[in-house]
Nucleic acid binder design. Structure first.
Lengths: 376, 376
DNA sequence: TACTTCACTGCAAAGGTTTGCACAAAGATC
DNA sequence: GATCTTTGTGCAAACCTTTGCAGTGAAGTA
């Protein structure tokens, strides 16, 4: 019943190899023959069997996309962009959800390895060493984690944290809390590092609360702690937690931004819809999805696979090109941040250390410039 | 480099067919041999090549999931549930996004057809006849659309609309607007049909506004119309539109629920986070994803495929089992609905037509009971 | 003892495609 | 007009696995 290359060959009176070439190497076949074959194929509704093709070429034209939690609104735009980009290049995308579980991640990489040309690992919870080990099994591109020797797509949350802290300090806040993210998250560590440094540089105190689950309830659960900590501003690991915190503070009768200012990270679409609208560090999630697919596919076309004539070639020139891309973030100021107790007064560090509220203290952040591609 | 069944055979001193059977028909191989083979396979890190397996068995152990818009928060829970359910049964899921475009849908079904054992079509925008035609190419399960002769997973939005209208009328509203969804949406038609009937039965007027894009901005854009229509309550096609409407009304200075009550459909997680919290008809999206996968896989195991010994068998007993499942919806009352102008007065239709506010008028709705599975 | 049954394993074909090589015919070069 | 390219096509092997059939012993039966 399913129409194969053989049916097309019979219908157009050529050998199957000619049909094959009509699709995979059109320049090798006579234009007249080509149109005839194409017409027959169209007629019969022929579609090449990708499994058979994969078997011999060693490329499946599939990629795997491993996500910590599809239901987390941070990811869908990334998934959407990655799928779209992949499809433009004639790749299909397996999407898999790990429920934030490192063991599930590992198992999924194994399960997918034979079936895809590469895997996008988004916000992994695994250890670095495990990721490196897995990368020997299947080409990997990591999103939201920096790993030497592996292609990574990063969002410059460090810069975002600095902007956020400076924004808050500029508004007159000196006692700031950071709501940490989940254990094992590179983003969370990076955020903490940059926020601490920025707070120190600006003469503010930073209290770290966490780790927390990166969810609304994770933020809600910390509302009481936030109030008790006596801070006047909070930077949350992500918007979901920030929104949960908004809920929690509301329930406690704490007004935002009059009593406490709140800043999120991600700029999920939801953050425009809360009351007050959330001030947040926008991360370019769709761009990250696109970029990650591009990097994976570029790597894929460079490396030869199991095809017939391989063998020695792999051992010789394998030197992988491991680019790392850092995407820019941007502070989006909305209504959840307002003046703090020191509003209008001179900032403690400002006169001594820099040119004013928009000074960019950069105490040892990532050296990769925003938007740059650096091969290593 | 990649380890094949042959490597395992060599290592364990048996023929490759024995290795194959160790995995696909363990009861046919001597327990001692089996453990030896398994040990070798484990050692070498062997994973069967699914492309090769697909080639001969005719089943890929993949399914396709075609979604109108991944970024629409209605879908991620469905995707997540479907993926999880599929994985439990050793299937992987291709996710593809159509951007609400019917042509893209068709193309995707074609593209995926050869590569999957079946496709889940979620909230399709295609015509019924096209869907039926495509279903001859690859097994299909349709979500959110009723099609005779095809397995469908439906949410009882009709019941939901009735509950919503009755809730509003019970609160004293008589002039109600329905914000329609996108053209081609079965859910939108169904909603409209049931809401009209329910409004008529309860003696209220229903104004239909639309069709609209099923997004926040789609709802926002209708705020002005809603005010001009002079209604005191609105039922929106989905939560996203309802939330957009909330925004729009707020911008116009119309207070919710004091001046206008708003009801959404879906109960996306976001609807708990707006101010006021949204009253909505909860649809069981995760259950729909699970159910759809189950139905597809059940159908899949029933129908034989291209395998060696097929042939006549297909022609004989092909009679597809096309179950249709209707999942129950539930009205969740939150803060966006409040008393209307007729609050406290006697309802016009109530005394004449039924037993009171929770009467269930059912003027020609679907005959399939909620939660029932009906083979046709 | 001779025969059947049974459990296990090996053999080889098949599935749809790609691709290196060989070959033929036509055109180019001298 | 003989040789060399070029262009287009066919041939057949290879990719990795599954599976019907046949074969081998050993155990059970008469």
């Amino acid at each position: 019943m399913p129409v194969t290359i053989r049916d097309v060959a019979r219908a157009s009176g050529v050998h199957i190899s000619t049909v094959s070439r009509t699709f995979s190497a059109p320049h090798l076949v006579n234009p007249e023959t080509r149109v005839r074959v194409l017409a027959c194929a169209e007629d019969l509704g022929y579609r090449p069997n990708r499994a058979a093709r994969a078997l011999i070429t060693g490329r499946t034209h599939n990629i795997g996309l491993i996500i910590a939690d599809i239901a987390n609104p941070f990811f869908p735009p990334l998934i959407k962009a990655a799928e779209s980009q992949a499809r433009h290049r004639d790749y299909h995308v397996f999407v898999a959800d790990t429920n934030e579980d490192a063991a599930a991640e590992e198992e999924l990489v194994h399960a997918l390895a034979k079936q895809v040309d590469g895997v996008l690992l988004c916000s992994p919870r695994m250890s670095n060493s495990l990721i490196e080990q897995l990368s020997r099994e299947v080409p990997l591109v990591v999103v939201n984690r920096q790993l030497a020797g592996l292609p990574c797509v990063l969002m410059d949350v460090g810069q975002g944290a600095r902007s956020a802290i400076e924004h808050l300090v500029g508004l007159g806040h000196r006692e700031i809390a950071l709501l940490g993210g989940p254990r094992g998250s590179w983003t969370s560590r990076e955020l903490r590092r940059a926020a601490s440094a920025a707070a120190r540089a600006a003469g503010a105190d930073l209290t770290v609360l966490g780790p927390n689950p990166p969810t609304e309830s994770g933020g809600l659960a910390q509302a009481e702690q936030v109030r008790r900590a006596g801070v006047t501003a909070v930077l949350a690991y992500n918007d979901l937690m920030a929104i949960g915190l908004l809920e929690g503070l509301d329930a406690l009768g704490v007004r935002v931004p009059q009593e406490v200012s709140v800043v999120g990270v991600d700029d999920i679409s939801l953050s425009r819809l809360t009351r007050p609208k959330l001030t947040t560090v926008a991360t370019p999630t769709a761009a990250a999805g696109r970029t990650a697919v591009d990097m994976l596919l570029q790597q894929d076309t460079e490396l030869p696979r199991t095809g017939r004539g391989s063998g020695a070639a792999v051992a010789v020139g394998v030197r992988r090109t491991t680019a790392q891309v850092m995407l820019q973030t941007e502070l989006v100021i909305r209504d959840s941040t307002g003046p703090g107790p020191y509003a209008g007064r001179e900032r403690p560090g400002a006169t001594a250390a820099g040119p004013g509220p928009h000074r960019r203290a950069d105490p040892g952040g990532p050296t990769v410039a925003a938007g740059d591609v650096v091969a290593s």
